[in-house]
């Protein structure tokens, strides 16, 4: 019985401490973003890695998401005889929900995981200690460029996802299923307003921050992981848990933001 209490207390203390540590980490990183020295080149490098190199996968998934939305939407709408609403159905689902969420999940898989693994390996092999001992701030050097790059890249990737998705929907809805192209775009034009775009933009900014926070913090504090962040297995376990945690966080925040902004 006491064993159980001890265990609960132990877990609680550990997670409280961890939460405190990563919150402190977040504020330290945000503080360093807004204070000089500002460095452009590392940020561009990271935008290339997180953003530019994700474009292909975003293009592909965005296209197919739009296509399947049109396909499913068409058969549902046809039951009510309102195929004309297909354009607005596809556009609104993409702009408000699927665009930000799917783009975020893709970026977690492609970039978030590698950020955790990269920083985690640097922590394990004392490379972060080496930076500290050279009086080079590891947060400013390693983490801050990733923060800025992710916050810039994810909204842009989301925008690409939305546009490609809308054209994917047009491809299936209009060219394959015979909905009038003009109707598809006219419906969209009438039903989408700035609030929908704003909602997608706010979501992708928040998701970007969450993803980069979780993936960098998990790697940075690899050595204090409860499951033991040692060696290759420690890095792989921590990377997995960062991906899972970031994905869950994105979906939870998606609900919260929708509830607040609708």
């Amino acid at each position: 019985m006491f064993f159980l209490f001890e265990k609960i207390g132990d877990y609680t203390l550990y997670y409280l401490e961890y939460a405190g540590r990563i919150t402190n980490f977040l504020f330290q990183c945000l503080g360093r973003i807004i204070t000089p020295p500002y460095r452009i080149f590392p940020v561009i490098q990271q935008i290339n890695f997180i953003g530019a190199r994700s474009v292909f996968v975003i293009f592909f998934t965005g296209g197919f998401t739009g296509m399947v939305l049109a396909l499913q939407g068409y058969y549902t709408l046809r039951k009510f005889g309102s195929e004309g609403l297909l354009g607005s159905a596809v556009a609104l689902s993409l702009l408000r929900e699927l665009g930000p969420v799917m783009a975020a999940l893709m970026v977690i898989g492609r970039a978030g995981s590698s950020i955790t693994a990269e920083i985690g390996i640097m922590r394990n092999s004392e490379q972060i200690d080496a930076l500290e001992c050279m009086a080079v701030d590891p947060l400013r050097y390693l983490v801050v460029p990733k923060f800025i790059a992710m916050i810039i890249s994810l909204p842009l990737l989301t925008a690409i996802f939305d546009v490609v998705g809308i054209f994917g929907g047009y491809l299936v809805g209009s060219l394959m299923l015979g909905v009038n192209g003009g109707t598809y775009f006219q419906g969209m034009y009438q039903s989408v307003d700035w609030n929908d775009i704003e909602m997608g933009l706010v979501k992708s900014l928040v998701f970007g921050l969450m993803i980069v926070w979780i993936s960098t913090a998990k790697g940075y504090f690899l050595h204090s992981e409860r499951s033991g962040g040692f060696g290759a297995e420690g890095v792989s376990r921590t990377t997995t848990s960062a991906v899972v945690l970031a994905s869950v966080t994105v979906l939870v925040w998606d609900y919260l933001l929708s509830a607040i902004m609708l």
Binding site: M122, D129, E132, C133
Partner: peptide, 14 residues
């Protein structure tokens, strides 16, 4: 640490 130089046991090269 500005005055430090360190050679780590595992060298810790980047």
């Amino acid at each position: 640490r500005r005055d430090f130089g360190v050679l780590f046991q595992n060298v810790a090269l980047f």
